[in-house]
Design a protein around this nucleic acid. Structure first.
Length: 419
RNA sequence: GUGGGUGUAGCUCAGUCGGUAGAGCACCAGGUUGUGGCCCUGGUGGCCGCGGGUUCAAAUCCCGUCACUCACCCCA
């Protein structure tokens, strides 16, 4: 038996970086006033089809969709935004306070061909803000990402930003773009010719060299924004500059989901081959209304957790690896019984301790203590039990002290807490 | 979905012309009857990814399949 394609176990030996990220992310997000939200892994297919877009690759061919026993069409979530919007609307969160700031972490599912940094079950750290139209929040989210990555010790990342306009200016721009493309139609790849009718903006993002050449002088949405969008984007840029967040304005950054408006961005890395996006986000001012809620501006981003961890591994960033405060070596039945109760008691006091019940030799248990990275070892053999005096060894300095059995727990906890 | 590469011990890998499997690390034990990291000695550990075919004989050649991996596509 083995995991199915594109699915994987993340074992304890490699969990340190995951925990480090989770800890720092929730600390930072909470500081900025975000609240954790937890949502289901399974939703009605319709939710994703309507929000992500019927003609996107995700909905067309990447979702895990099936009929449940009552013939409802269900889908394992391919992303989190749709579900959070659904939740916001379902619980009428807009009623008593339309401004909501959420974060969450969890698995997403897309049936793509796996490769480096891309799995069929992958994890995202997701942040969403509802009810704030101001460009400052766009800037703040990018700032937040920048800081999270900086705090985690990441280097070599770059933020690409763009504006996709809004329903005021995008239709006119699309017409301009289509006019331009019509003349170049024969030069475009098959895929892009298909895109012309469905989502012409995406052609700008095509990686095919022939398409890149063909659209070199294509009109950019950035040059065709309405005044409000233009102003919005300017505030995002100047705010980032003031906070010393480096960014690159990338006119061809389009992003694959239909719901984005105005600001869109991506954090890219060069260390994962073709999978360059470590995080991506954007504004989606029309989605809440489209899904049946009140007209509410919204914006969010997602971090590719798996990718982030892989980048951290490449940079040799230290994982979170709590050592052991005390390893108790017990030899003989009576000692083992004592060791068991001591260990439980010490753990209740917030210290980390372990003991071994296999009845092995002192030497092999010392080796084990060493491997567990124990700060101290308590030695309890027949002799110590008989004399009611136990040996506490500091594994780093090799100093040993005798601890009387009567006050052992209190003394131990005292010594260990000082470390 | 398309194309390439790779599957041998827990891990990293070697294995010649087809002759039934090896190293380093890890693990266990001993060297030290009760003291870790270094060192030395020994030991455990293999359906050679799985299934089929060719052959007297297959880790080795052929076909299929599963998985991993890289690129395309797309995205996080």
């Amino acid at each position: 038996m083995q995991t199915i394609r594109g699915f994987r176990d993340i074992l304890p030996g490699r969990i340190g970086l995951w925990q480090k990220v989770e800890k720092e992310a929730s600390r930072l997000f909470e500081a900025f006033g975000f609240k954790e939200i937890r949502i289901p892994v399974l939703e009605k297919t319709e939710l994703f089809a309507r929000s992500i877009g019927e003609t996107t690759d995700i909905v067309e061919k990447e979702m895990y969709t099936f009929d449940d026993r009552k013939k409802d069409k269900l889908t394992l979530r391919p992303e989190a935004t749709a579900s959070i919007v659904r939740s916001y609307i379902q619980h009428k969160m807009y009623a008593d306070n339309p401004i909501r700031k959420f974060y969450m972490t969890g698995p997403m599912f897309r049936r793509e061909r796996p490769q480096k940094g891309r799995y069929r079950q992958f994890y995202q750290i997701d942040v969403e803000v509802f009810g704030v139209a101001s460009a400052y929040i766009d800037s703040q989210l990018i700032y937040l990402l920048h800081n999270l990555f900086k705090n985690l010790g990441l280097t070599g990342l770059s933020a690409h930003i763009n504006s996709l306009g809004c329903p005021e200016c995008r239709p006119a721009y699309q017409k301009t773009l289509l006019n331009f493309l019509e003349a170049k139609k024969d030069l475009l790849c098959e895929n892009c010719r298909r895109r012309m009718s469905k989502n012409p903006l995406r052609i700008l993002d095509c990686k095919a060299q022939t398409c890149q050449d063909a659209i070199k002088n294509a009109p950019a949405i950035l040059d065709n924004l309405c005044d409000e969008c233009d102003n919005h984007f300017k505030i995002v840029k100047t705010t980032l500059e003031k906070q010393n967040v480096d960014f690159i304005v990338n006119k061809t950054l389009v992003r694959g989901l239909d719901y984005y408006t105005r600001t869109a961005w991506e954090i890219q890395t060069t260390s994962l081959g073709a999978q360059s996006a470590v995080a991506g986000g954007g504004r989606y001012d029309k989605l809440v209304k489209e899904l049946g809620g009140p007209d509410t501006p919204a914006i969010g981003f997602a971090i590719g957790f798996d990718r982030l961890v892989e980048v951290m591994e490449q940079l040799n960033i230290e994982p979170l690896e709590p050592g052991l405060d005390l390893f108790i070596i017990a030899m003989g039945n009576e000692a083992m019984d004592k060791a068991y109760h001591w260990s439980c008691n010490i753990n209740q006091n917030g210290l980390r301790s372990e003991t071994d019940f296999q009845g092995k030799s002192l030497k092999s248990l010392m080796k084990k203590a060493n491997k567990l990275n124990a700060g101290h070892v308590l030695i309890a053999g027949d002799k110590e039990v008989k004399e009611n005096a136990f040996i506490l060894r500091n594994m780093e300095t090799k100093e040993q002290v005798i601890i009387n059995g009567d006050s052992l727990l209190a003394d131990l906890i005292n010594i260990l807490k000082k470390q």
